[in-house]
């Protein structure tokens, strides 16, 4: 559904993503793993349009989207969350989500009506907050949320857009350990509905192995391996390059 062909980006002399050709399957959860600096986030930025590639193409449902802006891609149905928490800090949690709902519903340039005229948006936003277990914080200013709650808010905003593809950049990054299960629960929830394609960057190995249908391994910008979690664990090259024998015990 989302394809890349020879996708490459260079920063000066450094090749951050190197001729990556993948095809991300519809309604599946694909994880991207790789050591720090492997080009995972850069790859994401290319998919979502924050960066444009030096070489190669990106196709979404067969359509070439390589030179499309972030906004257009988002309207096509590619939504992303950020590794660094990226919300509207001085607005309430509800308003954060409401803005996403408003965009989804295509109310963009309405200047005359009061925003409460669109009561549905407010209700929809509230329902989404319930879904990510954040409804009790609806009236809190986003800046005052705990880190884990901000990530949940991000996911709620992403869900509001109802994107076909969710690009989640380390949803559990920097999160307190006890907050992690809640996020995993949210992701499992989305996965269980089988309505959206999810692409996930993650460091926490065990989480990936349980959740993923497919795993991509990036190493120095190159696609090192692609397969089911079991394949990846069994893959010798991946073992030596990245996992460093971490899973040997489990295998033996």
């Amino acid at each position: 559904m989302l394809e890349t062909k020879d996708l490459t980006i260079q920063f000066g002399g450094h090749t951050a993503v190197d001729h990556v050709t993948v095809d991300i399957a519809e309604k599946q959860l694909t994880s991207i793993i790789g050591p720090n600096g492997a080009g995972k986030t850069t790859f994401f930025n290319l998919l979502s349009g924050q960066l444009s590639p030096t070489e190669g193409e990106i196709y979404f449902r067969g359509e070439n989207i390589t030179s499309m802006s972030t906004t257009k891609r988002s309207r096509l149905g590619i939504g992303r969350s950020f590794q660094i928490t990226n919300v509207f800090p001085n607005l309430t949690v509800l308003e954060n989500v409401r803005l996403a709902v408003q965009s989804k519903r295509n109310v963009r340039y309405q200047m005359m009506a009061h925003f409460l005229h669109y009561k549905k948006f407010q209700e929809e936003a509230y329902a989404l907050l319930e879904k990510v277990l954040l409804d009790k914080k609806a009236d809190t200013i986003a800046a005052n949320l705990a880190h884990g709650e901000k990530r949940k808010l991000e996911i709620a905003m992403l869900l509001a857009l109802d994107s076909e593809i969710l690009l989640l950049d380390e949803p559990t990054a920097g999160m307190a350990l006890e907050e992690v299960p809640a996020i995993i629960e949210v992701i499992e929830h989305i996965k269980a509905r089988k309505e959206q394609t999810i692409v996930l960057i993650e460091h926490k190995m065990d989480m990936i192995m349980d959740l993923s249908d497919e795993v991509l391994v990036l190493f120095h910008g190159e696609l090192l391996a692609q397969g089911t979690p079991e394949d990846i664990i069994a893959n010798d090259i991946v073992q030596s390059a990245y996992l460093g024998g971490m899973y040997n015990e489990r295998l033996s």
Binding site: F88, P89, K104, M111, M112, F115
Partner: peptide, 28 residues
């Protein structure tokens, strides 16, 4: 009224976080 309209709400969103507004699908 304009600042309280859906349009006005997007303006505030731009002030708060321009790149986020863009990735929500608004043409900043």
């Amino acid at each position: 009224r304009m600042t309280k309209s859906p349009f006005g709400k997007v303006l505030v969103a731009i002030r708060e976080n321009e790149s986020r507004t863009e990735s929500l699908g608004y043409q900043v």
